[in-house]
């Protein structure tokens, strides 16, 4: 009896929750449908064989710390991003990366970049093969690590500066930017604006770069 009584007390101690009315049940299904139809489809992670360093160029200094802490530092990234996409680092950490802050001197080129990313199918772009190809390209280029005193030493796979997450992050960005370059060229806009710049901020809570 005593044990049963303790069980009863514990069972009944659950805080009351919202009743699942037919309306709530409908909304739960709608939320499920929305979350699973608007996000990229799941993709199995293929662990790369190597790692590099180039991602530091993308998320150097404070931006890298912010990306690892799960914060958005760039003003447009907080509420005015053109596009957002998701991927999983080799460590299993989930990243969301936002694109925005496009600027330049040729309005047509700016518009083309913004249109491309606004309509981009990132799931189709970020295939395992495409990312692996970008990783292979990085490997072939070797890598340089810049020490605090400014001296440059070999970096990347096989060195003490190896970081698989950074390499993957860099490869993802390479794929995304290369696709945009290709689209600009298709529209005859490649090289028309030497001031054309694009910003991106990854957000990977828990990542150690």
């Amino acid at each position: 009896m005593a044990s049963d009584h303790l069980d009863e007390l514990l069972d009944r101690s659950a805080p009351q929750t919202t009743p699942i009315t037919p309306g709530v049940a409908d909304e739960l299904k709608r939320l499920r449908a929305a979350t699973t139809s608007t996000m990229r489809p799941p993709r199995r992670w293929a662990r790369p064989v190597v790692a590099g360093f180039a991602a530091l160029l993308l998320v150097g200094g404070a931006a890298a710390a912010a990306a690892a802490a799960g914060m958005w530092t760039l003003p447009w990234a907080q509420d005015d991003a053109i596009a957002s996409f998701h991927y999983t680092l080799p460590s299993g950490i989930e990243c969301e990366q936002r694109i925005g802050g496009v600027s330049g001197t040729v309005p047509a080129a700016i518009a083309a970049v913004e249109d491309f990313y606004r309509d981009a199918d990132f799931a189709a772009l970020l295939t395992d093969d495409a990312i692996q190809a970008a990783i292979d390209k990085q490997r072939q280029g070797g890598g340089i690590h810049v020490n605090d005193d400014g001296s440059r030493v070999p970096g990347g796979y096989g060195t003490e500066f190896y970081n698989a997450d950074r390499e993957y992050l860099s490869a993802v960005w390479d794929v995304v930017v290369t696709a945009m370059d290709t689209d600009l060229a298709r529209h005859g806009l490649a090289g028309v604006d030497n001031k054309l710049t694009l910003q991106s901020e990854p957000n990977c809570p828990g990542a150690a770069w």
């Binding site: 919202t18 009743p19 009315t21 709530v24 409908d26 909304e27 739960l28 709608r30 939320l31």
Partner: peptide, 11 residues
């Protein structure tokens, strides 16, 4: 937004 509103009504 809709789920939050529906939950609020149900509560």
């Amino acid at each position: 937004e809709r789920l939050r509103a529906t939950l609020s009504n149900a509560r």
